[in-house]
Amino acid sequence: MARRRSASELSYGLVIGSLAALALVVLVGPILIVLATSFTDSRSIRFPPQGFSFRWYELLLDEVRSRQIHRAVGNTLHVAVVAAGLATLGGTAAALGISRVAGKAGRLADALFMSPLVLPGLAFGLAALMYFTLLGFRPSLELIIAGHLVVVTPFVLRTVGASLSQLDPALLDASRSLGAGPVHTFRRVTLPLIAPGIAAGAFLAFMASVDNVPVSLFLSSARTDMLPIRMWGMMESTLDVRVAAVSGTLILVAFLLMLVMERLTGLTRRMRG
């Protein structure tokens, strides 16, 4: 009995342990490989990289030869800032509203607002293209912002909704019974307590917009080029080594932003929900 028990404990530890280790390698390995590759000195993308240089990063910074990439980065940041800003305002207000609607209606509203998260983004991207074109709009960054707004708002709703559900109603009652009006209670009690949730949501919405493919794929044009779409083009044609340098930059920026957000909002805890 005892022998059998230890044998199964051993097999459990071995199987689960090695699968989990493989999962970690699969998760992190590719990112480290891309980062290392971006410092290659050769004209081909290989791992391990040959030589060490910043030449692809230098080419990436070149105003003239990387002009298209620079424009795509500018467009992407512009869209992400505006879309995430609007999503944060609208999403926070909606989350505050929904949190006060009990029962079925509240759950239904929540499910509707969250649906872009599971809906095939590509179908929505095509729908947005047809809609805007048939209404007579020409491609513009504003249309991309409208499309992104819908797909990034669920991130705000989720983090703000989670903060609100952890809000102790006794605090609101206390504030009221001490004579504070609703506006005062909101500004001095509710808002400070849910602020980290709002910040985390804004950050995730921003990152989701920067990363968006399905909507940008249909709504971007030569004039309104977006970074992921440009990178796709660079990967499809001749494999341009600058893709590695762009990737390396994005990885480092994501890493730094994540450290900052972890400090400010406890992001990892919040995303675990």
């Binding site: 891309v34 990178m231 590695a244 994005l250 994540m258």
Partner: peptide, 27 residues
């Protein structure tokens, strides 16, 4: 948790590109 979220915040295009480097003929 950090290790799990890090790839999530790295662009899908970057992650796709990584697998070209890994799975390619000379990968």
């Amino acid at each position: 948790l950090f290790v799990v979220i890090m790839p999530l915040l790295t662009s899908v295009v970057v992650r796709t590109f990584a697998w070209i480097v890994i799975l390619g003929r000379e990968g």
